[in-house]
C-alpha cells in the first residue's frame, strides 16, 4: 500500500546503488538510521533481506502489504484468531522487540502458555538473524507515531528485564 511504498522504494534504491548513493531518499535514510531492533541499529542490507523473507514467509497470512487477513478482529469458526495486520492498523506496534522476536521464533504459546494459534513458530525455518531482519523490515514500515510508541515500549521492556 502507499504507506509502505516509500521505504520499499528506499530499500530498492539502496539495493541497486548502495548506501553511498542514497541521497535521493534522505528522509528514509534518517528513518533507517534511527531504527533499531533489540538494541542494535538496523542496516539497509538487513531491510532488503527482511523484505524478501517477509514476502516468502509471512505475506501469505499477514498480507503482501502487511494488511492482515480480512475481518481479522473476528475469530475463525474454530475459535482461532486470523492473522492481524503488521501495519499501523494492527497491534504489533504495541509490543516490544523481545516479544515480537519471541512470538515469531517460538509461537504465541511461548508468551501465553496453552494458547492455541495458527501463527507458526519459525524456529528451524528462519535463523535468528533472518527473524530480526523480517521484524526490522516490519518496523521500518510504521509511521512515526507507531514507531515512537513501540520504541518506548521496547525501552521499558529492556529496562525492566
Amino acid at each position: 500500500m502507499t504507506r509502505r511504498a516509500p521505504i520499499a522504494a528506499a530499500v530498492a534504491v539502496v539495493a541497486a546503488i548502495g548506501a553511498a548513493g542514497w541521497n535521493a531518499a534522505a528522509q528514509q535514510a534518517t528513518d533507517v538510521e534511527s531504527l533499531t531492533f533489540l538494541g542494535k541499529t538496523v542496516t539497509a542490507a538487513q531491510l532488503v533481506l527482511g523484505q524478501e523473507d517477509y514476502a516468502a514467509n509471512c505475506a501469505s497470512c499477514h498480507g503482501a502489504n502487511l494488511e492482515g487477513q480480512p475481518d481479522w478482529r473476528r475469530r475463525n469458526e474454530n475459535g482461532r484468531m486470523p492473522a492481524p495486520p503488521h501495519d499501523a492498523n494492527g497491534h504489533t506496534w504495541h509490543h516490544a522487540d523481545r516479544q515480537l522476536f519471541t512470538i515469531t521464533k517460538l509461537g504465541v504459546s511461548a508468551i501465553v502458555p496453552g494458547y492455541e494459534s495458527d501463527m507458526p513458530a519459525f524456529e528451524g525455518i528462519l535463523s535468528d538473524d533472518e527473524i530480526v531482519a523480517v521484524l526490522a523490515f516490519i518496523k521500518s514500515t510504521w509511521p512515526e507515531r507507531e514507531r515512537g510508541f513501540q520504541a518506548e515500549v521496547t525501552a521499558n521492556d529492556e529496562g525492566g528485564s
Partner: peptide, 24 residues
C-alpha cells in the same frame, strides 16, 4: 491486554514472566 491482541487466562505475572518461567 488493552491493545486487544488476545484473550488469555488470568495467571501469575505477565506475558514476559511466562517466557522466562515457562508454564506458570
Amino acid at each position: 491486554p488493552d491493545c486487544f491482541c488476545r484473550w488469555q487466562d488470568v495467571v501469575a505475572g505477565n506475558a514476559m514472566d511466562a517466557l522466562v518461567a515457562g508454564t506458570p
